[in-house]
Write a protein that binds this DNA or RNA. Structure first.
Lengths: 166, 166
DNA sequence: CACAGATGCTTCGAATCCGAAGCACTAACT
DNA sequence: AGTTAGTGCTTCGGATTCGAAGCATCTGTG
């Protein structure tokens, strides 16, 4: 473990720090906008957005949790909250009694459309404003590759339960 | 407000989503490594790291909070925690009785060195592995500019208390 | 100097978050 | 079918988080 005690040069450090800082700052501002515009937390918005983009407006709990990088128990909490507010419904899946299917309601979609313009405005102002088109493309490309790489590796808590090894 | 209901193209969306996803996934993994290696949360590590990089190993509470994008009350909580564990000390500032100066202790530095190799290993493996040198440079450049832009704008909760305007 | 406003930090209460443990259902193997 | 392992979700307890309010100090102005 930790068998490569190499250190980073300033460019690498800069990239890393900038990444963390930008996402923190962005998240912060977005959070406030969402709270004000539709009384949503960032997580709640992400959940609704994902559901809204789904072809049938629904997902399994686990897939939702993995999608937004969130703990399952945390998702249960938020899903209950959203359900009480009438923004989603929950029902056991037809094919698998264990799993719960979360579906966005019309009211959920309305909330989404109500909140969206402001959300875009914040992103535009904070994230895209200082960037050229090429920068955005580079960012999408580079970060996209990183994401794929991360998703490829054991996505959540590494150790697969068992190795059915020969 | 929201006077620009333009929408994003897929590149922009990709850049945004990738940013969020990458930082979330990264944070998650790093968190676990830190927890295991030195019983630190990510925030605690960030605080120690910042203090460790400071010329005199200390910062004011507010500057620390702004640095890591964190609420003041949250910082108070973590600073107390770190102080109890002997990783930092807190003392009123000499020149301003109001402000508290947080200083990293030798034990804090030791913890930092103990945790660092693993931290670097995670970053190397998860973030830098799929990237060329040029990619890292592009990332540092683009995200660095975004960060500067964000920091330039009213950094925390917008409204300055008063406008001493003419 | 007295005072109002600004600033730095902490306390407080409520919301959110996570991991571990538990419950229910499914799959695989015999 | 019976047994064992795997999977999906929730509950639980404790930790962390934030914003609002409070307290103490500082600063600028009369």
């Amino acid at each position: 473990m930790a068998d490569t005690p190499r250190s980073f040069d300033s460019t690498e450090l800069g990239a890393y720090f900038a990444l963390i800082e930008v996402s923190s700052l962005l998240r912060h501002t977005v959070e406030q906008q969402l709270r004000g515009a539709g009384d949503l937390s960032y997580v709640q918005f992400q959940l609704l957005a994902r559901l809204g983009n789904s072809p049938d407006g629904s997902y399994r709990m686990t897939d939702l949790a993995d999608g937004v990088v969130y703990s399952r128990s945390g998702l249960t909490y938020q899903a209950q909250s959203l359900e009480q507010r009438g923004l989603v419904t929950r029902a056991p899946s037809p094919d698998d009694e264990r799993s719960t299917t979360v579906t966005i309601t019309q009211q959920g979609r309305d909330t989404l459309t109500k909140v969206f313009p402001g959300h875009i405005a914040v992103l535009d102002e904070l994230l895209f404003e200082p960037l050229e088109r090429a920068d955005v493309e580079a960012m999408a490309d580079v970060l996209g590759r990183v994401r794929d790489h991360m998703r490829a590796a054991p996505p959540r808590s590494a150790a697969p339960r068992r190795r059915r090894t020969s």
